[in-house]
């Protein structure tokens, strides 16, 4: 199986939302959120791997990565990544008393991830103070 790029993952996530398929009924919201979150995580990992000093962080817990992010990326973008990741994480999990996210919510997050992916990929690097 070939490695999926963040944009492949996001494309899959969108397709899932768009598919009026009985086979995916009920599970699509969380599956879609999972794919979008993977796209986010993969982008951050790619970001770490771009520099030898931080390459190892790609294997650290996501929390660690998110903690370090503001030190290497501009703070607003880092905050946005943390927020979107947290929101998607919630959507991934089955909370017994919470309802699955609705399509428009998911689409919004996928849009957010997409713009963050672009932003990070085009290499907006913080000073790493």
């Amino acid at each position: 199986m070939t490695v999926m790029t963040p944009s492949d993952l996001l494309g899959e996530a969108r397709a899932l939302i768009a598919r009026p398929d009985a086979a995916t009924a009920g599970i699509w919201p969380r599956t879609s959120a999972l794919l979008a979150r993977q796209a986010m995580e993969q982008t951050v990992r790619t970001f770490w791997e771009a520099l030898p000093d931080t390459a190892g962080l790609a294997f650290a817990a996501m929390r660690s990565q998110l903690i370090c992010l503001p030190f290497c990326l501009d703070v607003a973008t880092a905050d946005q990544v943390a927020y979107t990741w947290a929101a998607l994480s919630r959507a991934c999990h089955y909370h017994p008393y919470e309802l699955a996210p609705i399509a428009t919510e998911l689409t919004g997050w996928i849009d957010d991830v997409e713009s963050l992916v672009t932003e990070i990929a085009t290499g907006i690097r913080g000073t790493g103070s």
């Binding site: 000093d53 931080t54 390459a55 190892g56 962080l57 817990a61 660690s64 903690i67 370090c68 030190f71």
Partner: peptide, 10 residues
Amino acid sequence: AVPAGVAMRV
């Protein structure tokens, strides 16, 4: 998993 160099800075 956090590389020492990163930890020393962050």
